[in-house]
Design a protein around this nucleic acid. Structure first.
Length: 288
DNA sequence: GCGACAG
DNA sequence: ATCTTGTCGC
């Protein structure tokens, strides 16, 4: 049940904007200036035909007995295709580290395709430069997909980023496809309200702070909203679950990004596309 | 110098 | 992200 392309790292990756490729060989300074140019090319307003209602997922997938089989013939063939992307890592004590990138395409609430790619990792994780470590693996997995995504749901930040160019923005601009970033912790910025003890469904804007260099953080003007803290799940008598940090990747406004992610959540903390991509990445990692 | 930092 | 069993609380 896991048909998966397996492109090698040397296969050229398909992009609409090759000048923004996240080349891991760049210097840190070059990576940062590339991100500034990327942010300038990104669109943080709605430029798509998506309606949260048409991508909504009502029933969570049952993962207790493995991943659900891909059923391309199921559901409305004209519904938007939402693709969740996530990575897992292979760390042999002797060889090189490799990334397992997984993409899961969902349409009308059903999985229609799985695709993955296993690629060598060139650089370590550096906060703010995640796209240069995981960008190529993600693009390789997206290349292995037969269907064309109408929306990308990336694991990590989009506009919530020092230069407003997180991995969701990076991949979205390269492919010129609407994208949103879903992070489990906050990279930068400041929530309007405290995120403690919030009920499911609650959200608050996240505004740029002094660490966001691309935004003007003056005294009199309110700082721009770069994303939202969204409480996707909570327990009745406990306040342990942390919120999700949702931000625009490309061609989606901050408020809409939160609306879309809310519609894609079906009872678990993570939106279904991310949850399935996470499980699929682990599955590929296990038998590899 | 101190702090703070997606996966 | 990853290394990992039991365990506290829905």
């Amino acid at each position: 049940m896991a048909p998966a392309g397996n492109p090698s790292r040397d296969d050229p990756v398909t992009v609409d904007r090759p000048e923004f490729l996240p080349d891991p060989a760049l210097s840190r300074t070059e990576m940062e200036s590339l991100q500034r140019e990327l942010a300038a090319a990104a669109t943080f307003t709605d430029d798509h035909d998506l309606d949260p209602a048409t991508v909504a997922i009502d029933e969570p997938a049952d993962l207790t007995d493995g991943l659900p089989p891909a059923r391309p013939e199921f559901g409305d063939p004209d519904a938007p295709i939402v693709v969740g992307v996530d990575q897992a890592f292979l760390t042999p004590s002797d060889g090189e580290d490799r990334a397992v990138s997984a993409a899961v395409a969902i349409r009308d609430g059903a999985v229609i395709e799985y695709a993955s790619a296993t690629t060598p990792l060139s650089i370590p994780y550096v906060p703010g430069l995640l796209a240069f470590r995981e960008g190529e693996p993600m693009l390789a997995a997206l290349d292995a997909l037969d269907v064309e995504p109408d929306l990308l749901v990336c694991d990590g930040s989009g506009r919530i980023h020092f230069r407003e160019a997180g991995v969701a923005t990076h991949v979205g601009v390269l492919r010129d496809v609407p994208s949103v970033g879903v992070a489990k912790s906050l990279l930068c910025g400041a929530p309007d309200d405290s995120t403690n003890e919030r009920p499911a469904g609650w959200r608050t804007p996240v505004r740029a702070d002094a660490s966001v260099e691309t935004a003007d953080v003056d005294t009199d003007t309110a700082a721009p909203v770069i994303g939202h803290a969204y409480q996707s799940r909570q327990y009745p008598n406990s306040r342990r679950v942390n919120p999700l940090y949702v931000s625009p990747g490309h061609r989606v406004a901050a408020e809409t990004a939160a609306d879309l992610v809310e519609a894609l959540c079906a009872g678990y903390k993570l939106p279904e596309p991310t949850r399935l991509a996470d499980a699929y990445a682990d599955a590929v990692k296990r038998d590899a």
